[in-house]
Write a protein that binds this DNA or RNA. Structure first.
Length: 270
DNA sequence: ATAATAACCTGAGGGC
DNA sequence: TGCCCTCAGGTTATTA
């Protein structure tokens, strides 16, 4: 479900609710996620949450000297509720806080994950080997162009490849390519440096715009407080097959790339 | 190394 | 109303 903006919005929602709180205990009801919740996860008990941050689509909670790494998969959602809040279906685990609240993780499709990392979290799985963070100055046209040069797969798949750039998922990949005027099926190596300039600028702009809107809610995703993200109202082509292209009016086309639906305008994107 | 494919899950929505 | 089919904001393991 969530791409970079949705994870960032989740982080920002969690930060004031978690920072400085002590984790009294961890309750796991269902370890069954894409990667099973590790047995030693209750090692966080007694630790203070000193920061809430994000890398790619992962949320990082610094707790004591360790790090809780959380991934939302497609349908993961974190809420902070009273300890007495009734359980819902697919509530996998709680971090019980020192103020009577719990951080509760719900995930119907179970594609998410939870890791406990001791030491530097960036040098080991699942964070090691990730590509550029798109909203930082590391992500430049020169970098992207160099990473596309040896690749022949469709450029959309390269944008969604986490070893090149992180956080761009299926929705934003289509939106970014539309806004850049680049056809999603173009071979990666065929994309010029000038086009990479455009792509990099558009990726930064679209992701930041979506964060400001609270992310994109189409079905499952919601913010920490349960409210929807408004960026869905500003999608131009994603999920709109046959609708008029907002630029030229011709019908939005679809194609499947990497088993994912892809939306584009065959007139505006070359 | 890169690319293509299948796989992991549940639930919502459309067609009949 | 219900069944059956398709599809869904992600990642990884396995093949060529």
């Amino acid at each position: 479900m969530p791409e970079l903006p949705e994870v960032e919005v989740t982080c920002r929602g969690l930060r004031p609710l978690l920072t400085g709180r002590t984790v009294k205990a961890v309750t796991v009801r269902n370890r069954s996620l894409r990667v099973p919740v590790p047995e030693d996860i209750d090692g966080f008990a007694g630790g203070v949450i000193s920061s809430v941050s994000r890398r790619a689509k992962y949320i990082l909670l610094a707790i004591g000297g360790d790090t809780a790494v959380i991934h939302l998969g497609m349908t993961g959602h974190i809420s902070v509720v009273d300890q007495s809040e009734p359980l819902k279906k697919h509530d996998h685990y709680d971090f019980i806080l020192d103020n009577g609240k719990v951080m509760r993780y719900n995930d119907p499709r179970r594609f998410g994950g939870l890791w406990r990392i001791s030491g530097d979290p960036f040098s080991c799985s699942p964070l090691a080997g990730l590509g550029a963070e798109p909203l930082t100055c590391d992500f430049t046209a020169e970098y992207l162009h160099s990473r596309l040069q040896r690749r022949h797969c469709p450029v959309k798949l390269s944008l969604m490849n986490n070893s090149i750039v992180v956080g761009v998922g299926n929705i934003y990949a289509s939106e970014v390519l539309f806004a850049s005027g680049i056809h999603p099926c173009r071979p990666s190596s065929d994309v010029s440096l000038d086009e990479c300039e455009k792509l990099v600028a558009v990726i930064k702009c679209k992701l930041e715009e979506s964060i400001k809107s609270g992310g994109t809610t189409i079905r499952n995703y919601s913010q920490v407080d349960g409210s929807r993200g408004e960026f869905a109202d500003r999608l131009r082509v994603y999920g709109k097959p046959g609708c008029a292209c907002p630029n030229c009016g011709s019908p939005v086309q679809t194609v499947t790339l990497g088993q994912r639906s892809t939306f584009y305008c065959s007139v505006c994107q070359k």
